[in-house]
Amino acid sequence: MPAYTERMPAGIPGDVSRKSGAHLEPNIVGATPVRYGAPVKLVSGKVVPVGAGDTATVVYGFLVRPYPTQGDSAALGGGTAPAGAQCDVLRSGYMTISMKGAGTPAKRDQVYVRVAAGGGLVVGDIVATADGANTVAVPDCVFMGAADAAGNTEIAFNI
């Protein structure tokens, strides 16, 4: 068993970190695979990743990592849900997400999502710092603390 000398890992991206009180909604992934823990929007009744140029109002929730898994549509440890897969979307609650290197989150800081690529970041990356028209603030979504060494941290969405 590893010894944690500094801090335990914050969690696994897409995992609902506080199960009690979380509101999940069943959905189907659209034509584009989606990373677990990524903000998603609805297009023709299916969930797809937030895209380039999207506004904050399109964020529908965050894609939940399935556990336990059944079948091979979402293998344990896999990073994305494939097109057409059944999935759950966090509509309200707490989740571990993978934050990219833009900014250092602190408790109750605003969560931003990239809507334009640049500076080593891609559309859909979650960041802690606003970057003009390149990011949008996710409504009712805040960080719950600092990120671990891998960039994982907890968010509160729609609470």
Score class of each variant (00 low, 15 high):
123 V>A: 12
152 N>E: 09
29 V>D: 00
69 T>H: 08
5 T>H: 11
107 K>V: 14
78 G>A: 14
106 A>R: 14
86 Q>M: 06
142 V>K: 12
7 R>L: 08
124 G>P: 09
97 I>V: 15
108 R>Y: 15
117 A>E: 12
87 C>N: 06
145 G>T: 00
36 Y>H: 04
106 A>W: 04
127 V>K: 11
121 L>V: 00
73 S>R: 01
139 P>D: 07
143 F>A: 11
70 Q>L: 08
32 T>V: 14
26 P>S: 01
94 Y>T: 05
107 K>E: 12
47 V>N: 03
120 G>E: 06
13 P>H: 03
69 T>Q: 09
95 M>C: 07
146 A>K: 08
36 Y>C: 00
42 L>F: 09
40 V>W: 05
146 A>Y: 04
32 T>G: 01
72 D>E: 13
16 V>T: 05
76 L>K: 04
30 G>H: 02
108 R>W: 15
108 R>P: 00
150 A>I: 01
83 A>R: 07
62 F>T: 03
62 F>E: 03
27 N>Y: 02
117 A>Q: 08
17 S>L: 08
63 L>I: 02
156 A>F: 04
150 A>G: 00
104 T>Y: 05
18 R>T: 06
49 P>Y: 05
27 N>Q: 12
106 A>P: 00
101 G>D: 13
147 A>T: 11
87 C>Y: 05
136 V>W: 03
31 A>M: 09
108 R>L: 15
40 V>D: 03
74 A>C: 10
14 G>C: 00
131 D>A: 15
105 P>F: 02
66 P>N: 06
122 V>A: 15
82 P>R: 09
152 N>H: 13
110 Q>N: 09
85 A>G: 03
119 G>Q: 11
33 P>K: 07
118 G>M: 09
121 L>W: 03
25 E>P: 00
64 V>R: 13
116 A>P: 07
51 G>Y: 02
149 A>F: 01
18 R>Y: 07
117 A>H: 06
143 F>N: 07
33 P>E: 01
73 S>F: 02
20 S>P: 00
31 A>L: 06
136 V>L: 02
126 I>P: 08
63 L>E: 08
124 G>H: 10
150 A>V: 00
120 G>I: 01
129 T>M: 13
13 P>M: 00
5 T>K: 11
106 A>C: 10
87 C>A: 12
127 V>I: 13
28 I>H: 07
127 V>Q: 07
154 E>Q: 13
112 Y>P: 11
55 T>D: 14
75 A>I: 12
157 F>V: 02
98 S>T: 07
32 T>M: 02
141 C>T: 13
71 G>V: 04
116 A>Q: 15
